[in-house]
Design a protein around this nucleic acid. Sequence first.
DNA 1: CGAATGCCATTTGTATACAATAAGCTGCCC
DNA 2: GGGCAGCTTATTGTATACAAATGGCATTCG
Lengths: 224, 224
Amino acid sequence: MSRASERAYNNIRSMILSGELQPGSQIREEALAELCGVSRTPVRDSLRRLEAEMFIRRNDSQRSFVADWSLDDLEDAFQLRAMLEAHAAKRAASRVTREQLGLLRFHNAQLKQAIEMPNPDVPKFLDHNRHFHAIILAAAASERLTNMLAQVTEQPVVLRTARHYDLENLRRSHHDHDELLIAFDKRDGEWAAAVMTGHIRRAFHAYAEAHSTDTEIRKSNLAA
Amino acid sequence: MSRASERAYNNIRSMILSGELQPGSQIREEALAELCGVSRTPVRDSLRRLEAEMFIRRNDSQRSFVADWSLDDLEDAFQLRAMLEAHAAKRAASRVTREQLGLLRFHNAQLKQAIEMPNPDVPKFLDHNRHFHAIILAAAASERLTNMLAQVTEQPVVLRTARHYDLENLRRSHHDHDELLIAFDKRDGEWAAAVMTGHIRRAFHAYAEAHSTDTEIRKSNLAA
DNA sequence: CGAATGCCATTTGTATACAATAAGCTGCCC
DNA sequence: GGGCAGCTTATTGTATACAAATGGCATTCG
């Protein structure tokens, strides 16, 4: 993507993720254009893209609004994500290369390190976690699957609440990864899929809890 | 979508589906704009959309080409489709309303009629078939799932070869639908999912055969 | 003769002006 | 006072002109 267009997309996206653009609020192309320092053309491109990714919704008369997801929507997204990631793990089990296995081990070791320090480095954990899942997706070798997963992984709520993840959950995640690695080593797709399903479903419940406390915090802020 | 933009989208899309724009061939925005009788702006919108739907691919320098899918790609799409439609059936089993069940029965009766006539009416069959699946998707009540399925259902190759479906396969499809209806009636999501998986996988093999003969025909045409 | 380089043609990206459409408001009529 | 009509304003859609980037070709140099 070219310069202006990319800038607009990244800007708007991060404004949505950070909550700077509040869920449910209307979006005006011109306003965003000014904020991003570009013209409406690249902004429109970005809005179309973000609409396809369900960050933005449009009403009957083409006006755009920041998407506002309920807990049900979140569960729906996670259900799909669990299914798709399990599928990816299954495919990866029979396709993953030695090199990819090595990389997976590396990132898993790194993310373990990140939470075993006296002061856990959560961003570092999340970064290696992201790489870990990306490698599996690459090993699964299905472009469509990759596109679809992007649609359910990068949720505003998901990213916003990721930091709430407690240490115990992070440790369990690491162990799931360990088990996945063994399943890959044995080329056992069914096992890999099962582990991945549990891995994502646990994440959902962690997120759901974080989300509800998050919502309560926001409510009390509004009330104050 | 507005007039010009919608026209461009539909025009280009049908040109791809019909093969008027050959797989692999380059696409120039200006040429399409003239063909559709609109300016480049709505054409660009359409191209972006079609790119997201994987009808179009872009190279490193942003030039667009009509997507060209191999048999492997087709299988990949069908694998995802089977998984997603099975998921839809499972969800639908516990959510489908009396009214929707009635509609499903109606369309299934109609598509049976379409192939039991002396002269089978395949377009009519396909039309009611489409409705049948759409109702299940609606009953599944997941917008994301609907979007994802659209991405794997409306494939150029799929639509182009649908007509090759032989009568025996159409009859089996009808019976699958019957069984799905019973599963829905019993609210048995697992059963519904299993039937749907088989339903789609059979479709894949029918398509795959049709695709290979289709490819051979095209090759011999090129050779002649 | 082959490879690299610079120029020209082609194509896409961006900005902007204008058109079309929808929302909101004001004032009128019942 | 309530609701509807017509106008005004806000917002999005489309066309077009121009800018930037890319690819291909020809020429030149080793």
